[in-house]
């Protein structure tokens, strides 16, 4: 009886702690949504109420109709999409290479990749600007894609390498003996088994590029080539901050990321390699 009570208490505590964490993690999102549908006149008078006395979608309408947000949004989709695809492709090739081959200079390359992750990006904003400017890559989405790809490839490579390391070599060796070239074995056997890894890497790079502010702000000054994080700053003017519109834009910016993760979440589930080897 006493034991039973103890077990129940344990589980109650368990779920209470989990619930606490979930509330802590999701509250800002909730507040984002709440402010985005609060009419301007209630924003300050009912500031601390959990739900406004009446709601409106006016902020959404004005963000979509009267600001350049749709353009920023489109730019962000292009930049984050291109960055995630390019980075994942490069990281897949590099990660496979690190996982399967030993070659001269491997240690050095891995070392250099690590070093790039070790200093704050603010330090290199100016040199990057000086590099890209004469090439006509400032105020351009291509420039952003190149910079983001360069910064995301090292981590993505290590991520992909760990996924390749988890796939037994026997599988591709079996395929090569069965008559496949190494590339065919990679395509037909290894890639299907590392889909969770590919999805995770794609998701990681996509969110990183999607929410990046520093370079987007520094390299691109024209609004034609701005991404949405820069666009959000436009809601802050000298004398006021348009919280309602800013939050509405924020909610809109969350949608593609959510959609993206919904799309890939099936592949994020691990366990595809179960049954491959051993009994």
């Amino acid at each position: 009886m006493k034991h039973c009570l103890k077990v129940r208490l344990y589980w109650i505590l368990h779920y209470a702690l989990l619930a606490l964490f979930v509330v802590f993690a999701l509250f800002p999102l909730y507040w984002l949504v709440k402010v985005s549908i609060t009419p301007n006149d209630l924003l300050y008078s009912e500031g601390v109420r959990l739900w406004p006395s009446h709601t409106t979608f006016a902020h959404y309408v004005s963000v979509l109709r009267h600001t350049a947000f749709p353009l920023f949004f489109r730019n962000s989709v292009i930049v984050a999409g291109a960055t995630s695809v390019t980075s994942t492709l490069i990281a897949t090739a590099a990660g496979y290479c690190f996982s399967r081959f030993s070659f001269t200079g491997k240690f050095l390359i891995v070392g250099v990749l690590m070093v790039t992750q070790m200093f704050p990006l603010v330090m290199i904003v100016a040199p990057i600007f000086r590099l890209l400017s004469p090439l006509g890559l400032t105020n351009s989405l291509t420039g952003l894609v190149i910079v983001y790809t360069a910064f995301n490839v090292p981590f993505a490579t290590f991520l992909m390498q760990s996924f390749f390391d988890a796939v037994p070599r026997d599988l591709e060796e079996a395929a090569m003996i069965d008559g496949a070239s190494r590339f065919r074995a990679f395509r037909s056997i290894i890639v299907p088994l590392t889909l969770p890894g590919l999805a995770a890497t794609l998701g990681f790079v996509f969110t990183a590029a999607w929410s990046e502010l520093l370079f987007a702000l520094m390299l691109n000054s024209s609004s034609d080539a701005s991404t949405f994080p820069v666009g959000l700053l436009a809601f802050v003017s000298k004398f006021s901050v348009d919280f309602g519109q800013m939050m509405a834009a924020g909610v809109l910016a969350l949608l593609p990321v959510c959609a993206f993760f919904l799309l890939i979440q099936r592949h994020l589930v691990q366990g595809l390699t179960a049954g491959a080897v051993k009994g």
Partner: peptide, 20 residues
Amino acid sequence: LAPKERDLAMVFQSYALYPH
């Protein structure tokens, strides 16, 4: 010769069946 050109077959200790 690459493994695929040798026309040999191998049975692995781990079986190495393609899990997917």
